[in-house]
Nucleic acid binder design. Structure first.
Lengths: 225, 225
DNA sequence: TGAGTATTCTAGTAGTTGTTTGAGCAGTAG
DNA sequence: CTACTGCTCAAACAACTACTAGAATACTCA
C-alpha cells in the first residue's frame, strides 16, 4: 500500500463519518432516534416504546451519545435523552429516502402491511393545507400529547389514539377527517382511521409526519392544544 | 418483552434503514462512496485512489451493492461501479453535516491539517458567481478530467492538479484564481493553491465541492472543457 | 485456441458488536 | 438511616465483520 498524499488526514475524516453512520447501523438504534425525533424521552419510556430491556436500551443510547447524535440530562430520578442537533433528524430522513429509493424490501413490507389494513389513499398536501384553513377538514394528530406539544402540523387537533374513542362524539360527523402520526411507517394513524371509519366517519391517513412536513418547508407549530 | 401492536412491521422497516446506515459504517466504504459521488469508476481505480488492496475494495463494493447504494456494470474486461441513486449523495452530505455539527474531532482534525497548510480564507459564494461571470476571477477545477466531465461548477476551467505546472504559463497573472476540488476534506485544491502562490499568483481555495454546490441549488454544468 | 488481465470467491484469523444477567450507583421519600 | 426507583456498569457469550493470500472465474485479444 503506497500512501497517497493526504492519506492520514482523509482516513481520519472518513473514520469520523463512519462513526456517525455506525451509530445508525442497528435497527434498535434507528428506532430510538426516530422516537427521540418526536421529542425528549426517559430511558424507561424508550425501552417500553421500543420493546427492549432497560439495560439494552441504556447501552444503545450510550452508543448514540458516543457518536454525538443524542444528549442526556439528569432530572432527579430520571435521565432524559434528546437529539443533539436538528441535523440528526435530517440524517434519519436521508437514510429513509435512500432505503425507499433503493430497497425493494421496504416497498414490499409496506405494501404487505398496508394491504392488510386497506388504507392506501394518498393525500395531496397542497390541497390539504387549503382545506384545513377553510375548515372543510378536521386534521387529527394522534400521537401522544407530549409529541404534539413539541411540534405539530399547523391547524391540527391533538387527539392521542387512546383517547380517540372518548372524543369521537365531539367531532363533527360531516367533515372529512385526516389523521397523521409519526410518518409513513408509524401505525397510529392507520389504527385511528380504522376506528373512525367503523363509526361512520369519512377518514383518510396522511402519510407524512411532522418531520416530513417540516422538511417540505410547511408550517409547523409548537405548544398549544 | 410484551410485543406492542405493529412490532413486526416496525422491526422489519427499521432493519432496512439500519442496513443502509450499516453500508456507510466503515471509513473505507465512506471513502468509496465519496469517490463514486464524483463519477463512475472501475474497481482498480477505486482501489488505487483509496489505497486499498483490490480484493478488499471488491468486497466493500459488494457490501455497498447489497445495501443498494451502488450499481455495477461490466464493460468488457472492467467492472464499473456508480452510485445507484442521487439520494445516496444526499445521504453522504447528511452524514457529513452531523459529523461537522457534533464531532469536535472533525473540527480539530481539519483545523490541524489546514493550519499546517495555512489556507484559511473563506470564499463568499454569491460574490464568487458574480465575479466569475464578469471575468474578474479564474475558477479552476483541479480534479481529474473525468470528474470534471461528469459535473462541475458553471464557468470553471478544468486543470487537473498534475497538469497545473504545465498550464500555469497560460493563466492570466493579474486575475485572482479560485481553486476547488471534491469538497472541504479534499486536498487537491490545497496543493493547487500552494503551487499557484509559489509562482506569484493570488490564489484562494473554495471549500465547497460540486456536491455542495448542487445541494445549494447553484449552477452545475456537464461535459465541456 | 491459449495467454493475459480484471475481478470475484474461499478460507482462515483477529477483532468487534449485541445481548443478557446480576451487581452497583445516584437520587428521592419516609 | 432505610427502602425504593431509575439507570449504568462488568462479565461473558454467540454472532458478525474486516482483512489477507491464494485459487477460481470472466472476459479480451492475438
Amino acid at each position: 500500500m503506497p500512501p497517497t498524499p493526504g492519506r492520514r488526514f482523509k482516513t481520519a475524516i472518513y473514520e469520523q463519518f463512519a462513526r456517525v453512520a455506525k451509530a445508525l447501523a442497528s435497527a434498535h438504534r434507528v428506532e430510538l432516534v426516530e422516537l427521540l425525533s418526536q421529542g425528549p424521552r426517559t430511558v424507561e419510556a424508550l425501552a417500553r416504546l421500543a420493546d427492549m430491556t432497560l439495560a439494552n436500551t441504556s447501552a444503545h443510547l450510550q452508543v448514540l451519545r458516543g457518536a454525538g447524535l443524542v444528549e442526556s440530562t439528569r432530572d432527579g430520578l430520571f435521565v432524559t435523552y434528546r437529539l443533539a442537533d436538528p441535523s440528526v433528524a435530517d440524517l434519519l430522513l436521508s437514510v429513509r429516502r435512500v432505503a425507499e429509493a433503493r430497497l425493494a424490501e421496504v416497498a414490499k413490507i409496506t405494501r404487505d402491511f398496508l394491504a392488510q389494513n386497506s388504507q392506501l389513499e394518498p393525500v395531496d398536501e397542497a390541497a390539504l393545507r387549503v382545506r384545513v384553513r377553510k375548515g372543510e377538514v378536521t386534521l387529527l394528530d394522534v400521537r401522544p400529547a407530549e409529541e404534539f406539544v413539541s411540534g405539530h402540523i399547523a391547524g391540527a387537533l391533538s387527539v392521542p389514539l387512546p383517547e380517540l374513542a372518548r372524543r369521537l362524539a365531539r367531532l363533527p360527523k360531516r367533515r372529512e377527517v385526516v389523521a397523521y402520526c409519526r410518518g409513513p411507517y408509524c401505525v397510529l394513524a392507520i389504527e385511528a382511521v380504522k376506528q373512525l371509519r367503523a363509526r361512520g366517519f369519512k377518514a383518510v391517513r396522511l402519510e407524512e409526519g411532522v418531520l416530513d412536513w417540516a422538511a417540505l418547508g410547511l408550517p409547523v407549530e409548537r405548544t398549544s392544544a
